[in-house]
Amino acid sequence: MKIIDAVHVFFDYMRKDENDKIEEISPALSDMNLEIEKGSFVCVLGHNGSGKSTFAKMVNGLLLPREGSVYVADMDTADDELLIKIRETAGMVFQNPDNQIIGNIVEEDVAFGPENIGVPTAEIRDRVDEALEAVNMTKYKDRSPGKLSGGQKQRVAIAGVMAMKPECIILDEPTAMLDPKGRKDVIRTVRELNKRDGITIVLITHYMEEAVDADRVVVMDGGRVVMDGTPREIFSRVEELKALRLDVPQITELAYELRKAGMPVPCGILRKEELEEVIMELLFEGDKGSCDSTDTDGTEPDLGTDGTEPDLGTDRPEQDLDTDREDKSEGACQ
């Protein structure tokens, strides 16, 4: 069953001058299509201006499509009557932890959503306690949000959404302003909510490491979806990702470089442990050819041609920077 369905969505940002005349139109989404299954963990990648945030706001009904429709649990976001219900179903967590906490005390902030939708007092209490427990912030419930770390604030924000009993949470770069520890905590929390409570998670991020454990990775560029698949599929396409100005996780990049230099390393390696096994096998124990991981056999030759495809990035102005770096690492490998 799908929880989010975006159908041929178009959206433009407009800049108006003092007389309300349109000065500039910049398209944010152009023919975006995306279905998200209930209960899945989807990671959305893309550089700034690729339309990720606009899409997130569409799901929550904060923005409405100029053309096309967005459905949340079969409710059309364009229907004013349904707006509150939609926002209850699909909650949202934003980038800046300070600018989304309304309450002056943690538990009061978590209660803000349920209060708005008129949940009876006794039930608000239960929901707040549950939500704080779910993000592991119970012992901070009486604190002032100002005294919390960035990661803790984001978990409070997530609890605020959880207290509305949503089916889906959209997180718009929730870790961009956090330190590594805060980042880990937030991601762990989100993953738990997905696994334990079956909440659908749409995680928009710049950190490729966060995408590794997702069920599905969606890459956006120019206001539409350009890549869509499992993390392994997506991160096998290193050249394409680089052409889209996205990074790959360090481990994936190392595997890719090793393969480029002639080692028979399968593609789409995501985790340290996998690469470790592969390297141990190649260098230590078995001989060449013992690499029988089935899921990568098919894609490997493809990748070879992909890797040498020259015209992928040539029309991009910032190209030299990229090739610079690549030359460096290539050189180092030979």
């Binding site: 509150i84 300070d98 600018n99 349920p114 008129g118």
Partner: peptide
């Protein structure tokens, strides 16, 4: 101003629509 805009959006996303029909955690 940026913070105000962000906050307004966050409040809206959390179903804020004025005082009508609101309940309280701690009435």
């Amino acid at each position: 101003f940026r913070r105000a805009a962000d906050l307004a959006q966050a409040m809206e996303a959390r179903c804020y629509h004025g005082g009508a029909g609101r309940t309280k955690l701690k009435p």
